[in-house]
Design a protein around this nucleic acid. Structure first.
Lengths: 193, 193
DNA sequence: GTCTATAATTCGATAGAC
DNA sequence: GTCTATCGAATTATAGAC
């Protein structure tokens, strides 16, 4: 993006991005300072400007993440809830990307730019992924509720860190959540219990 | 809290608090400035300091809100999900308090102080309210999941404003969510669909 | 009680030497 | 490509006049 394309520059760029995600995730957009990000990348603050132009452009680059949902078509409908929950949770647990998803969810609460990123990602990757395996009608009607449920779990566990959701293992959490997901997917009027 | 106790002072204090909640809700803790809050209250910035001591103490005062859940004991178990959802959503829709709950949820994502407020409120008011109507065991195990689901709906609707959850009427939303709530309350191992 | 004026920081961004 | 130095703006907080 910026001029340099040498391997050295690429490593620097990646180091900045990594440090930026750490700081943005920890303190949000406003409190995270370019100075602190530069310090985290062991580099001069002005380099951050040189590589990314501005704080806002750096933020955009840090928000560019992927939910990584696989193609669900052909999944046994009976196991769809567990599969969906497990695949949805996996990238949140991963720390190798400095918690890009946690960063996105966290900042979306107070930053409209991040919120738009998240809405777009959910629509593009989540709803579309569901439309493949459910019909268009079911997906349109149910994906909203499903997204809300999964966002709730993610927010409770990774952002708010509320017990007991934050303490469970991923498999235990998937088992706990799956029944509600199944209900949301079934999408019929409530039959007694 | 601060010196004055005259009726004039009380009105000023309330005006500051109201304006503070509006700004904190709209921009989060960091971006909301004392200057803007003072302007919203049609008052001098230094008065905010005089009344609340510091920006942080003002923030604490603005976060002191109530979920307003009624006593659920005696509620028809069959109608518990709808009742719970409806009562949970009601104060979020109310604008008379300048969106105190939205403010709390929004800021909890990037401010540890707000997060602690929210965790405490959920534990004190939500879990306790459920323990009354469910047993201790069911409440302890299920309230976490229930809280996650309801937080997910609130976050999706009021903070992220993701469609279609954000567009539905409250009754329609309650009907949509209730089945999943019932499943979460039932809390048994998933029986096939 | 309310306001003016300003102190003391801190930050994003720029210019330019090397 | 990397760093030094600094500008200009914005912020919280304080001191003191009225």
């Amino acid at each position: 993006m910026a001029h340099p394309a040498s391997p050295r520059s690429l490593r620097t760029r990646e180091a900045i991005l990594r440090a930026a995600r750490v700081r943005f995730a920890a303190e949000g957009y406003q409190r995270a300072t370019i100075r602190a990000i530069a310090a985290g990348a062991s580099i001069d603050p002005s380099m951050v400007m040189r590589y990314f132009g501005s704080k806002e452009q750096l933020f955009d680059a840090a928000l560019d993440v992927d939910l990584g949902l696989p193609d669900l078509t052909g999944t046994d409908p009976e196991r769809l809830p567990q599969t969906l929950v497990a695949h949805f949770l996996a990238p949140w647990e991963d720390d190798s990307d400095e918690g890009s998803l946690r960063l996105l969810l966290r900042c979306a609460a107070t930053n409209e730019r991040a919120a738009e990123h998240l809405r777009h990602m959910l629509h593009e990757q989540f709803t579309s992924s569901l439309t493949g395996v459910l019909g268009h009608e079911r997906a349109a009607a149910g994906s909203g509720l499903l997204a809300a449920q999964l966002l709730g779990v993610a927010f409770t566990r990774y952002v708010l860190r509320l017990r007991p959701i934050a303490d469970l293992s991923v498999p235990a959490l998937a088992e706990l959540v799956a029944p509600s997901m199944r209900t949301a997917l079934a999408l019929h009027v409530p039959s007694p219990l």
